[in-house]
């Protein structure tokens, strides 16, 4: 194959440096969307090019990479991105959350607690939390700069007036470090609390929209709410049908056309570890 024609991490070093400069700015201004000269990547926009560019810019030879999509290591796009990095970096990859130094993700944060030695990289489709309220980029940048966020709460107010609760279940907006409101990428709101005061550096990359933002370690991330209608993450009355976990995010699997369902952890690594633990204790 022609891999050797490409630089380590696919991007040339100048592009990586440009992205790392944007990252420094993003870390210095938690939640602020830093424009950067996003590159075309050999996968389509919307398929994780933002995350891939970030990972490509920060990954080193000693890193160990985990890639998940929907919480699972074996979903098609996770496999594809992991293979890409195997080809262009030849780094070690893993499915075990604890072993990874860089975790690229789409739509989930692992259940296992993360550490200071890890970096999370999120793939972001639309970085602008105000986009559906205000389509103009010129205007939203001004709203962020001046912290004019009243209209965000109008949306939450309308939800409660109409439905009796805040009807946003994923990509739930949060205020970072007392200033910028950010879109945490389309993770379920179940994962929002994991962003708050996390020991792990969280990086967000939007390839097509050419924006990078970050939540540095130990930063306050407050999901928007009202005093009398506080933010509440999803809860289940069920356990995982495979590992019995009561505290993980569950996917509903339709098993036949009569409406039978299984409820299983979306985090496949977490689920398998749990199952293994139980087998051991059963022995």
């Amino acid at each position: 194959m022609s891999e050797q024609l490409y630089n380590f991490g696919y991007l040339d070093e100048n592009s990586k440096r440009m992205i790392r400069r944007a990252l420094l700015k993003a870390v210095a201004l938690p939640g602020y969307q830093v424009p950067f000269a996003g590159k075309e990547m050999p996968m389509p926009y919307g398929w994780g090019t933002g995350g891939v560019q970030l990972t490509a810019s920060i990954i080193g030879k000693k890193d160990c990479l985990k890639v998940i999509d929907q919480g699972a290591d074996d979903t098609t796009n996770a496999v594809s991105i992991r293979n890409f990095f195997k080809r262009v970096c030849d780094v070690e990859t893993t499915e075990e959350t604890g072993d990874a130094t860089v975790i690229q993700t789409r739509h989930r944060i692992p259940e296992q607690a993360l550490t200071e030695n890890q970096i999370m990289v999120f793939q972001v489709p639309i970085p602008e939390p105000l986009r559906y309220i205000e389509p103009s980029e010129t205007e939203t940048r001004k709203m962020h700069a001046l912290k004019e966020y009243g209209v965000m709460h109008v949306k939450l107010y309308e939800d409660i007036a109409r439905h009796g609760e805040i009807a946003t279940s994923y990509a739930y907006p949060a205020e970072v470090n007392g200033h910028y409101i950010m879109d945490p990428s389309p993770i379920p709101k179940f994962d929002n609390p994991k962003l708050d005061n996390s020991p792990t550096l969280m990086l967000f990359g939007a390839g097509r929209e050419k924006r990078i933002y970050a939540v540095p370690p130990y930063t306050n991330v407050k999901s928007l709410d009202f005093e009398d209608y506080p933010f509440t993450p999803q809860t289940w009355t069920r356990k995982c049908d495979l590992c019995g976990s009561e505290h993980s995010y569950l996917d509903e699997i339709v098993t036949d056309d009569k409406g039978s369902r299984l409820w299983v952890c979306s985090d496949t690594d977490f689920c398998q570890k749990n199952q293994a633990k139980q087998e051991q204790s059963n022995v």
């Binding site: 075309e40 919307g46 979903t75 796009n77 739509h107 279940s169 379920p188």
Partner: peptide
């Protein structure tokens, strides 16, 4: 590239978000 990528990304699994919806 922007347009075709974002339209086609709807083919990717979205079941976690769909679950929360």
């Amino acid at each position: 590239l922007d347009a075709s990528g974002f339209v086609s990304h709807l083919k990717l699994p979205h079941y976690v978000d769909f679950q929360s919806e």
